[in-house]
Simulated assay, not measured.
Amino acid sequence: MNTDDLNFAYRVRHALNEKLDDLPASTTDRLAAARKAAMARKKAHVPVRVTQAELAGAGTHAAGFFSSPFSWLGRMRVAVPMLILVAGMVGVYQYEEQQRIAELAELDAAVLSDELPLSAYLDHGFNAYLENREQ
């Protein structure tokens, strides 16, 4: 089936679904019977994604998010992994921030507990002294 056929089928389906509630009961019964007959002639190897409730309730069409019983499950298959991914990223960010804060606190504690005055750390000559001392 090419894309033009698919687009036509979608447009026909959409037009029928818009006016489904306005159809008389006799028309919906005939449509349901025609659908059952078509389903009986369907090839065995072609899968069908139609629930029994859709076959039985041709006149009770609920448009929108809950148009079929499992449509929200399809949306949740995408939403749940995305939410898990976002939650995982937030968790990793929080963990890294806590590690950074702990490292800064350790550095601050080491600087404050040292015997040198804070001004010594700002002196450029002190950095040269530390480099010479390590060699």
Rank of each mutant, 00 (worst) to 15 (best):
M1P: 10
N2H: 11
N2W: 05
T3N: 10
D4Y: 14
D5G: 07
N7W: 06
N7P: 04
N7K: 07
F8M: 13
Y10N: 14
R11Q: 12
R11M: 08
R11Y: 09
R11L: 12
V12Y: 03
A15H: 11
A15Y: 14
L16W: 02
N17W: 11
N17V: 13
N17C: 15
E18Q: 10
D21C: 10
D21P: 09
D21M: 14
D21H: 13
D22R: 14
L23S: 03
A25Q: 12
T28F: 01
D29A: 08
L31F: 02
L31R: 00
A32R: 02
A33L: 12
A33C: 09
A33K: 15
A33N: 10
R35A: 08
K36N: 02
A37T: 03
A37F: 01
A40W: 08
A40V: 07
R41S: 15
H45W: 07
P47N: 01
P47M: 01
V48R: 09
R49T: 02
V50N: 00
T51V: 04
E54S: 06
L55Y: 06
L55V: 06
A56E: 05
A56F: 04
G57E: 07
G57R: 09
A58W: 01
A58V: 15
G59A: 06
G59P: 00
G59I: 04
A62F: 11
A63Y: 13
A63M: 12
G64V: 12
F66L: 15
S67Q: 14
S68Q: 03
S71C: 10
W72R: 05
L73A: 07
M76G: 01
M76Q: 03
M76R: 04
M76F: 08
V78F: 05
V80Q: 07
V80H: 03
P81M: 03
P81F: 01
L83F: 12
L83D: 04
L83C: 08
L83G: 05
I84E: 09
L85D: 11
V86K: 02
G88Q: 02
V90R: 04
V90S: 04
V92S: 02
V92D: 02
Y93L: 13
Q94L: 13
Q94C: 14
Y95G: 02
E97C: 04
Q98H: 06
Q98L: 10
Q99E: 12
R100A: 09
R100C: 05
R100K: 13
R100L: 12
A102T: 09
A102E: 14
A102D: 08
A105F: 03
A105T: 06
A105M: 06
A105G: 02
E106L: 04
E106Y: 05
L107R: 13
D108C: 10
A109K: 04
A109Y: 03
A109S: 08
A110C: 07
V111S: 00
V111Q: 00
V111A: 00
L112H: 04
S113L: 01
S113D: 02
D114K: 00
E115M: 01
E115N: 04
E115S: 01
P117N: 00
S119P: 01
A120L: 01
L122W: 11
L122I: 08
L122Y: 13
D123M: 04
H124K: 15
G125L: 08
G125M: 11
G125T: 07
N127P: 08
N127V: 14
N127L: 14
A128P: 07
Y129H: 12
L130C: 05
E131I: 13
N132G: 15
E134G: 10
E134D: 13
E134L: 15
Q135R: 12
